[in-house]
Measured scan of single mutants.
Amino acid sequence: TRVETATETAWISLVTALHLVLGLSAVLGLLLLRWQFPAHYRRLRHALW
């Protein structure tokens, strides 16, 4: 049971790290898009909202 718990903890930390990385890359990508294509971003936002 001790090994299982350790594996579970490792998986949880791995998944958390993955989610953090994905979230950060998504935010960075959005910022980059907004910085590179302001007109396109505004049009996209206008279409979405």
Rank of each mutant, 00 (worst) to 15 (best):
W35K: 07
L22Q: 03
E8T: 09
A26M: 12
S25A: 14
L44M: 10
L48Y: 05
T5W: 02
Y41G: 08
R2E: 15
G29C: 13
A47K: 12
L48V: 13
T1Q: 15
L30D: 02
H19G: 15
L33D: 00
A10H: 07
Q36Y: 13
V3R: 00
L20W: 06
F37V: 06
R45L: 08
L44R: 01
L24E: 02
I12K: 11
L44Y: 07
I12T: 11
S13F: 13
V27R: 01
H40G: 13
E8H: 01
L18H: 00
L44D: 01
L32V: 13
I12R: 08
R42K: 13
I12D: 05
L20Y: 03
A26Y: 06
R2S: 15
T16E: 00
W11T: 05
L18P: 06
E8R: 03
L18S: 03
H40W: 11
Q36D: 00
A10R: 06
L24R: 01
W35T: 09
L22G: 09
T7E: 07
W35G: 07
F37K: 03
R43W: 09
L32D: 03
G29P: 04
H46W: 05
H19P: 02
A26Q: 00
S13C: 10
L31T: 11
I12Y: 09
H40M: 13
A6P: 05
L14H: 05
T1S: 09
L14C: 06
V15N: 06
V15M: 13
V27I: 14
V15L: 13
A47V: 11
T1H: 07
T9W: 10
R2V: 15
A26C: 11
A47F: 13
L32P: 06
V21P: 03
L24P: 04
G29I: 13
T7Q: 14
P38G: 13
T5E: 02
L33A: 08
S13L: 07
T5Q: 00
L14S: 04
V27Y: 09
L14A: 06
I12V: 12
W35P: 09
T1A: 13
A6M: 12
T5S: 02
A39Q: 15
I12A: 08
L32T: 13
H46M: 15
I12E: 02
V3C: 03
S25H: 00
T16G: 05
L31Q: 05
A10T: 10
L32A: 12
S25K: 00
T16Q: 03
R45F: 07
V3P: 01
I12N: 06
L14K: 02
A39R: 12
T7R: 08
R2N: 15
H40Y: 12
E4R: 08
H19S: 15
L44S: 03
E4Q: 14
L33W: 10
S13E: 03
W35A: 04
H40Q: 13
A47H: 13
L18R: 03
R2K: 12
L28H: 02
Y41N: 05
E8I: 01
L33Y: 05
L48T: 07
A17R: 01
E8D: 13
T5M: 03
L30W: 09
G29T: 11
W11F: 11
L44A: 12
H40D: 06
V3L: 08
T9C: 04
G29D: 03
V21F: 12
T1L: 14
V3N: 01
L30C: 12
V21G: 08
L24S: 04
Q36N: 12
T1C: 08
R34I: 11
L30V: 10
R45K: 15
V27T: 09
T7P: 15
L20A: 12
R43L: 08
L31N: 02
L20M: 11
V27G: 11
L44E: 03
A26F: 15
G23A: 15
A47D: 04
G23R: 02
R2D: 14
A17M: 11
T9Q: 12
T5I: 00
V3Y: 02
A10P: 04
L44P: 02
I12Q: 06
G23Y: 03
W35V: 07
S25G: 05
T7S: 14
Y41R: 06
R43P: 05
R45H: 06
V15Y: 07
A17G: 09
R42N: 11
R2H: 15
R45Y: 06
H46F: 06
H40A: 12
L44Q: 03
L30I: 13
R42C: 09
L30E: 00
E4S: 09
L32W: 11
V15G: 01
L30T: 06
V21A: 13
A6V: 05
A6I: 03
A17E: 02
W11G: 01
V3H: 01
H46V: 08
S13W: 15
L24T: 04
S13Q: 10
I12L: 09
R45A: 08
T9Y: 07
A10F: 02
Q36S: 14
W11K: 03
W11D: 02
L33P: 05
S25V: 09
L24H: 04
R42E: 11
L14Q: 05
V15P: 01
A10D: 05
Y41C: 15
T7C: 00
Y41T: 13
H40C: 13
W35Y: 08
T5Y: 03
P38L: 13
T16Y: 05
Y41H: 07
T9I: 10
L18V: 09
E8G: 02
L33I: 12
E8F: 04
L32S: 09
Y41E: 07
G23P: 06
A17I: 12
Q36E: 07
W11H: 10
V21E: 02
R45N: 04
T7K: 11
A17P: 07
T5L: 03
R34H: 04
H40E: 09
R42I: 08
F37R: 05
H19D: 06
E8Y: 01
T9E: 10
L28S: 05
A6H: 04
E4P: 03
V21R: 01
L31E: 00
V27L: 13
L32R: 01
G23L: 15
Y41W: 15
E8N: 03
H19M: 15
V21Y: 02
V3T: 01
T1I: 13
A10S: 13
R2A: 13
A39E: 14
T9K: 09
R34A: 08
W49S: 06
L31A: 14
S13H: 05
A6W: 06
E8C: 03
L24Q: 02
A47S: 13
L28N: 01
L30Y: 09
H40V: 11
R34L: 06
L28C: 07
V15S: 04
L32Y: 12
R34S: 07
T16I: 15
T1Y: 10
H40K: 15
R34M: 10
L20R: 03
G29M: 11
V21K: 01
H19F: 15
V27Q: 04
V15A: 05
V3D: 02
E4C: 03
E4N: 09
A39Y: 12
A17Y: 02
G29L: 15
H46T: 09
R43E: 08
T5A: 00
